[in-house]
């Protein structure tokens, strides 16, 4: 649904998206990386479990919440990818650890 127009020579980092390793350009946001790699939805909502994806891309709407390196509720549009980063979908509400 989305593609990059960037030239292939830019430096890359390797992240995993739902466990699968992918190479993405350094400096890209997690939300951008997700939609380029076909992940239109990044989470399901806490109220009705409906699918949501990035919407405003500027930190206002909080719809692009994902789990990054095990920490849920991160704003995907505001986190820049880093080598070895683990990005996973988030289902429903954030769980509370005792």
């Amino acid at each position: 649904m989305f593609k990059r127009l960037t030239d292939a020579s830019r430096p890359k980092v390797t992240v995993t998206i739902n466990g699968a390793p992918v190479e993405v350009p350094a400096g890209e946001s997690v939300a951008a990386a997700l939609i380029v790699h076909g992940e239109r939805a990044c989470r399901t909502t806490a109220v009705s479990a409906s699918a949501r994806g990035p919407y405003c891309m500027m930190g206002v709407c909080h719809d692009c919440l994902v789990r990054i390196d095990g920490v849920p509720n991160r704003q995907g549009c505001r986190v820049i990818v880093a080598d070895g980063m683990e990005i996973t979908h988030q289902s429903g509400a954030r769980e509370l650890k005792p």
């Binding site: 989305f2 593609k3 890209e28 405003c56 891309m57």
Partner: peptide, 24 residues
């Protein structure tokens, strides 16, 4: 609220910061 519906400003941010555009 469906994935794939975005603000036009979001489209601009994607292109400016990541060079990412709709492919289909």
């Amino acid at each position: 609220t469906l994935p794939g519906v975005m603000n036009a400003g979001a489209g601009q941010i994607l292109v400016k910061s990541s060079g990412v555009v709709p492919s289909e």
